[in-house]
Write a protein that binds this DNA or RNA. Structure first.
Length: 422
RNA sequence: GGAGAGGUGUCCGAGUGGUCGAUGGAGCUCGCCUCGAAAGCGAGUGAGGGCAUUGCGUCCCUCCGUGGGUUCGAAUCCCACCCUCUCCGCCA
């Protein structure tokens, strides 16, 4: 949820923000609804005052043994008036809420304004693309030959867009998950969380997936359950509706969960291998911080994710997303793209976003800045650390040898129990 | 899934139609006392919105799981749903 005061006081700024995000929102109607809503609220407030005092006097009359029927009738009419006003208010509120939920978070000043993916800015590179004395193979060939990736059977039991790992492949994914979490917990002060993978609609609305992304998510038939598209959803909503004491901030969480996405409309590209699938594992970092600290925290979040790729020895680049390409709820976002030599392309393995108070407003997550101070909305951030299948892809393709075996990076060997996958 | 009990403020816990945003206790904050602390005493201690802000608001509205309903008036009565607990069933 954006700040409604922004609309009242700085309409032009919000219009620019919507344009930068290439969102078409009927702000005129929103302003109109806001005005109506406030008028009705004031009117109902006044009517309630009237009714409250009248009702009290009726009580006194009855106690005194006087006849109160005339007064009762008058208040009954007042009650009808209030009911009508409340009915109108409900309708206006529903319209207002529905429309307000479609207003995107304005981009931060440091987010470049752009029209699309092509306007994203590469702001950093790390590592060299590996050189091979042979033609590097794509992960699906490596995986099949080694017997660690089984796409045909995944398709048989679930459908296209799913994968089955086996043997060292399954172990590799689990090794990465464990190592990621260990690093986040031991070195970056995260508290590990293992949340539900199904959540309800208010939770999906809190982080901004609903209403906009409804068609991209899986839903349980006949019940109010959605399959999470990222751990961001359950973890951020952990504190929904709560007021956190200021001294508890910042709070850092990390969580491993599967992520479920329909990826509708993506057929035709990225269909080979496991770059775009309906279910994938991810370790996510979620931060709850004081507003004044959020952009420092954002940079540190980025470093946290980068650290993982660097220790794995995988070449990557850092991309600052432009206003048109960042998500609906984000104010600023960096993507980390890892080099996959077999596919000869960059793959997004992490997205580190600052949502400022956008999600906090929607989900009602507040903090008390200091003793006796009024609660205020805190800032939320999250970043992948990291998405699994694509990390596995980069790893297989980067560390492949001429004979098709894979060298296991140093940091994973304790978790893998071997130095080479063969 | 079936039967029963219950959901009230930071926590415990009263309240079964009217002045209850809510008794009481604990906790916390401040003050007194003390060399200091404890005890004791006194005061304060939820959120949102409106209005006001020529001081700091003796001002108004809303919120007692959620949503409806009855009533002049509901934390209190009725209905639905959600959640928690106990027992039974089932099960990893």
């Amino acid at each position: 949820m954006f700040d409604i005061r922004l609309l009242r006081e700085n309409e032009a700024h919000l219009r620019e923000a919507c344009a930068a995000k290439r969102a078409t929102v009927d702000l005129d109607r929103l302003i109109e609804l806001d005005q109506k809503r406030r008028d009705l609220t004031r009117r109902i407030n006044d009517l309630n005052t009237e009714r409250n005092t009248a009702s009290k006097s009726i009580g006194q009359k009855i106690k005194a043994g006087e006849d109160a029927e005339a007064a009762k009738a008058a208040v009954r009419r007042l009650g009808e008036e209030i009911a009508a006003a409340e009915e109108a208010q409900r309708a206006v509120n529903a319209d207002f809420e529905a429309l307000a939920l479609t207003v995107p978070n304005p981009p931060h000043a440091t987010t470049p304004v752009g029209r699309g993916e092509e306007d994203n800015q590469v702001v950093g590179h790390w590592g060299e693309k590996p050189a091979f004395a042979f033609t590097p193979k794509p992960h699906w060939e490596l995986g099949e030959t080694l017997g660690i990736l089984d796409l045909p059977r995944a398709t048989k039991i679930a459908g296209s867009g799913f994968y089955v790992l086996r043997g060292a492949g399954a172990r590799l994914e689990r090794a990465l998950i464990n190592w990621f979490i260990d690093v986040h917990v031991r070195e970056f002060g995260c508290v590990e969380v293992l949340p539900p993978h199904l959540v309800n609609s208010p939770t999906m609305t809190g982080t901004g997936q609903l209403p906009k992304m409804a068609d991209d998510m899986y839903r349980v038939e006949g019940e109010d359950f959605w399959l999470i598209p990222t751990a961001e959803v359950p973890v951020t909503n952990l504190y929904a509706g709560e007021i956190i004491e200021g001294e508890r901030l910042p709070i850092y969480h990390c969580a491993f969960t599967p992520c479920f996405r329909k990826e509708a409309g993506s057929y035709g590209k990225e269909v080979r291998g496991i770059t775009r699938v309906h279910q994938f594992d991810k370790v996510e970092i979620v931060k709850f911080v004081r507003p004044e600290a959020s952009y420092d925290e954002h940079e540190r979040l980025l470093r946290q994710a980068q650290t993982l790729l660097e220790r794995l020895g995988l070449a990557y680049r850092t991309v600052l997303l432009c206003s048109a390409d960042i998500s609906f709820a984000a104010a600023k976002c960096y993507d980390l793209e890892v080099w996959a030599p077999g596919m000869d392309r960059w793959l997004e393995v992490s997205s580190c976003s600052n949502f400022e108070d956008f999600q906090a407003r929607r989900a009602g997550i507040r903090y008390r800045p200091g003793a006796k101070e009024k609660p205020a909305f805190l800032h939320t951030l999250n970043g992948s650390g990291l998405a699994l299948p694509r990390t596995v892809i980069a790893l297989l393709e980067t560390y492949q040898q001429k004979d098709g075996t894979i060298v296991v990076p140093e940091v994973l060997r304790p978790f893998m129990g071997c130095e080479v996958i063969k």
